[in-house]
Design a protein around this nucleic acid. Structure first.
Lengths: 234, 234
DNA sequence: GTGCGCAGCGCACTGAGTGCCATCGGCCCC
DNA sequence: GGGGCCGATGGCACTCAGTGCGCTGCGCAC
């Protein structure tokens, strides 16, 4: 929990060298030489050279997992994972300069992109695991959980990247809220309005109808019929 | 285009050793010794030890990209990317035994999981690039492209993994079709029937209606009215 | 003081990946 | 047939990431 200054010194030295001469052109020996520590200590703080680029993702992932774990039973699951994704974006937004630097590195270096994918994959699996628990018993629950988790992560990344491309200028939260609203709309989170008090345990089979706003009514009816008849038996 | 037997020999030797003693416990020297070739030749065919686990993904990705590139202008974009995903699944299904072996490897070895993520990420970006081209000009077009691509890939992977977990028994296509139908429904691909020729550029706002199956019709109507009136302005 | 534990350090080692050059076999041209 | 070209392969040496092990120095309890 405490912050060893050695770790921060290694991160600072690594980023300085990565930025001025490139990631692959920088050896671990040069990093530890600049930081003034022994080579062996580097690998005690970071399991690999790539991990120094994502110094606090373990903590961030743990925070997000804890946030999901402490969800009240009656929270709307999709709302909750969107809130979790929003939380992750806020962690990025805490250090805009650092996040932008890292973005530029990961954009250029294929190896770092692979590392980032592993990191993001763990976030996505955490979201999916939460949704799987909430969707257990529903038809296609696991499928829905995986797809919604992927969509939330994609929306989050879309907003995050556009914010990073603008060098961290502007408000990151409005973009991510807009993106997440799109996902919520697509996957049918009903707005918390009238009719929210039906027995929720019996809402196993659902029909999701997506219609264009302003579409002619005959199209709406057609969609209803199609959705009702195409539902699988189970 | 031709198939050098040396490549296949390396893949066979590698998988034999990976399966009998584990991926990380197998060195490249052992692979080339079993295959009876020089160590240097291994890296001429595979840029890294991990790539021998995905021997034909470059070709598969190229096929999928070509399939998307040759899409007629009037094809429904979401339908097209779903068809592309279905095509990838068929390539997996061509060699069930090999796909199952690889699945077990990637499930156990974290390094291989990271490689697989990189591979899948390239598929997803190809799908997203296609959708971005088709959605250019639409509001939130890039966001929609990214989210739909991620959802399609997630649905595909969900079906693929459940098929792989069953050791390649059964029909892989029905599961993937069902999963992709869910995505299509969520993102509002209208079935190719009457009314498919309205101006598509105006389908920005959507209304999502969720109803219990078997609910009385008056509740359905009530939900429709509620959803229509509760939609935010933008 | 003495023993203990811990954080860092040095060193040697494995193994992936690369650059360079030698070799060998086919193949064209003369 | 001979000579030269070329692509595929093999061998070798090298860099560098990552690991195991033992040593040292320092704080701390007893």
């Amino acid at each position: 929990m405490t912050k060893p200054p050695m770790r921060d010194a290694l991160v600072a030295a690594a980023f300085q060298l990565f930025l001025e001469r490139g990631y692959e052109q920088t050896t671990v020996d040069e990093i530890v030489a600049l930081a003034g520590v022994g080579r062996r200590s580097f690998f005690r703080y970071f399991p690999s050279k790539e991990d120094v680029v994502f110094p606090d993702h373990e903590r961030c992932l743990a925070d997000m997992t804890a946030y999901l774990a402490e969800s009240p039973e009656d929270t709307e699951p999709v709302e909750r994972v969107c809130a979790a994704a929003r939380m992750v974006l806020l962690m990025y937004a805490e250090n805009p300069a650092f996040s932008v630097q890292r973005y530029r590195l990961t954009k250029k270096v294929p190896g770092l992109r692979a590392s980032e994918l592993s990191v993001v994959w763990r976030y996505e699996r955490a979201l999916a695991a939460f949704l799987r628990g909430r969707f257990a018993g529903r038809t296609d629950g696991m499928l829905r959980a995986d797809v919604i988790a992927a969509a939330v992560v994609a929306a989050h990344n879309n907003a995050l990247r556009s914010w990073l491309r603008s060098d961290g200028q502007g408000d990151a939260t409005t973009a991510v809220d807009h993106a997440l609203d799109y996902v919520k709309a697509a996957f049918g989170t009903p707005p918390p309005g009238p009719g929210g008090n039906e027995p929720r345990q019996e809402t196993e089979d659902v029909v999701v109808l997506v219609s264009r706003r302003g579409a002619p009514m005959w199209r709406v009816v057609q969609e209803i019929e199609s959705a009702l008849t195409n539902q699988p038996e189970n």
